[in-house]
Design a protein around this nucleic acid. Structure first.
Lengths: 110, 110
DNA sequence: TCCTTTCTTCTATTTTGTATAGATTGGGTC
DNA sequence: GACCCAATCTATACAAAATAGAAGAAAGGA
């Protein structure tokens, strides 16, 4: 198996959050989405580092936004998922589904 | 990851394979199960290292098996998932499901 | 004995994940 | 118009997880 082929756990989470917010998500809202959906409070640095890595891999791309918040603030950097990113996500999901098959979550018995 | 809170990507895969093989999986068969189900050819070292880490965390436990293969061979170490392991798996799945919700895989563009 | 088979351990290295601190930007305030 | 403040991103350092493959160990047969 060629190296660097799989999405890390947090990479999947971030990619999914970007997908949900498409195409306007940026650092702060992405982090908020993760927390809102999963209850997981990721650090700011963790989010940006992962976003950056994902962009380097071509799974995400970004462009500067216009700074128009109610008061002050630096221009946000918006992220969009690329077709490659979407494919990687589907692939990761397919893999997990194949392993879960027949063992639905919560089915403690057996 | 604050003190063993989240499962890594490969940790999830290995845990799931152990669950499927419960309670008789061991290194070699676990690796084979992963390959059979996902097509992913994980290295031997990756599997054992992960198994070990998972056991240290209490998500898996192991016991020596009896060596009864058709011909020779060292005794295998069997792995079973613990209730904590099962809980961690359900939690990881719940998190991913929450993020996928409304964006079923393969649904390409809106 | 020693060879073969099956399975596990070990060590080194790269990739991912996390935290903290700080730089940058633009608007408000006086 | 200099200064402060809040929102956002960047840099750096380090910890944990993932990878690769060679080496070691135990059991049975020739």
């Amino acid at each position: 198996m060629p190296r660097g082929e799989h999405l890390g756990e947090f990479e999947q989470v971030v990619l999914l959050a970007v997908l949900r917010l498409n195409p306007d998500g940026y650092g702060v809202t992405i982090r908020a989405e993760i927390e809102a959906r999963t209850g997981r409070d990721a650090s700011v640095g963790a989010v940006y580092a992962t976003l950056d890595r994902l962009e380097t891999k071509g799974l995400l791309d970004s462009h500067a936004g216009t700074p128009s918040p109610t008061r002050g603030g630096r221009a946000p950097r918006h992220y969009r998922i690329t077709p490659e990113g979407r494919t990687a996500l589907d692939e990761a999901r397919r893999m997990l589904d194949a392993l879960w098959d027949g063992f639905e979550p919560g089915a403690g018995s057996a």
